[in-house]
């Protein structure tokens, strides 16, 4: 039976956005923690650590999110973890995010002038103290804008996890379309909801970037 695209369908789609947002937040937090470790390892003085981090970044950035998702999903279940789709999805998105955030943050750490390392070395700071009190606070300011920009990528890529049965925005759209056969209306609505989430974040990222550049020039 063909249903109409009515208010209740719209509300179904809109409310599925909570899974999109939850996935984004989970993968941002998990991926952020992991990405932080990647960035620190990538700027380590120990060559093996640097290599390991570079390898992780290179590998993850060379594999589609969709395949990362399947790898995490089947890999984890093979190891005996029978995870609910939302968890498997968050983990794979976190792997994905860790590589991109790790690489972004590496750049931010290296953007701090080397004289800041030297000045703090001369003041007898240990390496962890330098990171904690001198380098990271400065790197963080540089990192805000590109990190916010990356969140947009993250939101968009959560759409891919619809394939393992998480009923987030894209999947909800699919379900409604299968019932109503009004693809323009349905997917147009889905797209607009994504846009309503992503565009403000994009604008924010751009504004933050402008602010940072202005403060640097001044």
């Amino acid at each position: 039976m063909i249903r109409e695209f009515t208010q209740s369908e719209f509300i179904f789609i809109l409310s599925s956005a909570r899974w999109t947002l939850l996935l984004t937040v989970l993968s941002l937090v998990l991926g952020g923690l992991f990405g932080f470790v990647v960035a620190i390892a990538r700027t380590s003085r120990l060559a093996p650590l640097r290599l390991l981090a570079a390898g992780w970044i290179g590998v993850v950035q060379g594999i589609p999110v969709l395949i990362l998702l399947f790898l995490a999903y089947y890999g984890l279940s093979m190891l005996g973890f029978d995870l609910p789709p939302i968890v498997a999805a968050s983990i794979s998105m976190a792997f994905y995010a860790s590589a991109y955030l790790g690489e972004i943050w590496r750049g931010c750490i290296q953007a701090v002038p080397w004289q800041q390392w030297e000045a703090s070395t001369a003041l007898a700071f240990s390496r962890p103290q330098q990171y904690r009190y001198v380098i990271l606070p400065q790197a963080m300011r540089i990192a805000v804008a590109p990190t916010v920009g990356f969140i947009v990528q993250l939101v968009k890529n959560t759409s891919i996890v619809s394939i393992i049965g998480v009923i987030e925005l894209a999947r909800a759209g699919n379900l409604v379309n299968n019932a109503t056969f009004q693809p323009f209306k349905v997917f147009g609505t889905v797209a607009l909801i994504y846009f309503a989430i992503c565009w403000p974040i994009s604008l924010l990222a751009r504004r933050l970037e402008g602010k940072l550049n202005a403060s640097r020039a001044g």
């Binding site: 004289q115 800041q116 030297e118 000045a119 703090s120 001369a122 007898a124 400065q138």
Partner: peptide, 16 residues
């Protein structure tokens, strides 16, 4: 280094 202070040509204060 705790006993030796050094000051460079560029001041390198912590800007944050």
């Amino acid at each position: 280094r705790k006993d030796v202070g050094i000051v460079f040509q560029s001041y390198n204060l912590f800007p944050h």
